[in-house]
Design a protein around this nucleic acid. Structure first.
Lengths: 196, 196
DNA sequence: TTGTAAAGAAGGAACGTCCGTTTTACGGTT
DNA sequence: AACCGTAAAACGGACGTTCCTTCTTTACAA
């Protein structure tokens, strides 16, 4: 049995774990739940992951990686969108991630909470988020050259603000569930262009 | 011994629980931890709270209530601040809440995560957040009358965006720890006033 | 081609620990 | 003496993990 089969099994386990975590949360999910959902036995699962924390770590990493995967094509599109267009596309993606079948977005708050007390995970997340900052900062720099963002700010700082807007949207959507991406984007433009 | 003493004891327990939760998280904290931290015994604690979930619920409610308490004076100050001034003050407050002695802010991600899978808590939070939205919306409406925010948007929608900016700041501050309120506020103004 | 032995993957019962909660006995106050 | 709140031991159950068995696959020899 080879690498290929082994990877497949890992994915089988992670997929099952993700579904359980979405339903019940990291710490309300028992290993028995994961065994049942994956259709595998205890011994088998422990052959691929050395502990429950190991599985949680893998899932948490995937969640942020997924966000990077979604943002990448938006921030590097040809032709480059304006920052307002990019945000709106980001909001739509966030909305899909939050409510899509896989429910990755529903895990985000748990991942944040976990990272608050797990330094290793916080480091992983920190690296990924820095990647996201740079991704957005590239667009910000272009917008600064185009005169649509004040040029004397650090693009990364502006990127952090833009990321906040998307993250804040996702959180409010998840918890309160009463915002449409388009409406939200238009409200944002009310701040950026008071005269419009 | 009456109401007064009873309330005091409740506070004593909640304070201890909060310190434990900040250190270890809701689900990694055992009741024994809370007994030890509060200096009370099991029977005693269970005389005031009927379960661990009860304690978590009370703490979670307090966390959001604390946010309301901080935002209220900012959004209703005399004279009314501009929205940019208000945001900056909000960021400073968020920073204090996140890193202050009581560490209330450090519980926020956990509260969100908990609310994702507990409908009752989600309802409580929903109500509190609606209060926050209205608080901010009051300021937004004033700013719309002053011409600093486009007038044809729903003030509550704009309020949601502003809240995102603060919440997103707090989250990035907690997880990555590399943002100062003033720098962040100035980056925000780069979007609102590209010419500045 | 077939039988066999070795290796490794999967299964599932078993284990020790820990946890939330309850109950019972004690001590102080009125 | 009675009552109420507190302390601390005890309990039932659940949990993460391990360990030993069983089954499947594969390689090689007859």
């Amino acid at each position: 049995m080879s690498q290929e089969h082994s990877d497949l099994r890992r994915q089988q386990i992670l997929g099952a774990a993700r579904r359980c975590f979405v339903r019940e949360g990291f710490h309300q999910t028992s290993m028995a739940d994961i065994f049942a959902e994956s259709g595998l036995s205890a011994g088998s699962v422990y052959g691929y992951f050395k502990s429950k924390n190991d599985i949680i770590g893998a899932i948490a990493g995937d969640v942020v990686a997924e966000i990077v995967r979604l943002l990448e094509p938006i921030m590097a599109a040809e032709p480059l969108p304006t920052w307002e267009e990019a945000i709106e596309r980001g909001l739509v993606s966030a909305s899909q991630v939050a409510f899509g079948d896989e429910g990755f977005g529903r895990l985000a708050p748990q991942v944040w909470a976990e990272a608050m007390r797990d330094e290793a995970l916080r480091d992983v997340l920190g690296e990924r988020y820095r990647r996201i900052h740079e991704l957005i900062a590239g667009l910000v720099a272009a917008e600064q050259r185009a005169g649509r963002i004040a040029a004397d700010r650090d693009p990364v700082d502006v990127a952090k603000v833009l990321l906040s807007v998307v993250v804040g949207y996702m959180l409010q959507r998840l918890l309160l569930g009463d915002i449409e991406p388009v409406v939200y984007a238009r409200a944002l433009s009310a701040l950026a262009r008071p005269g419009d």
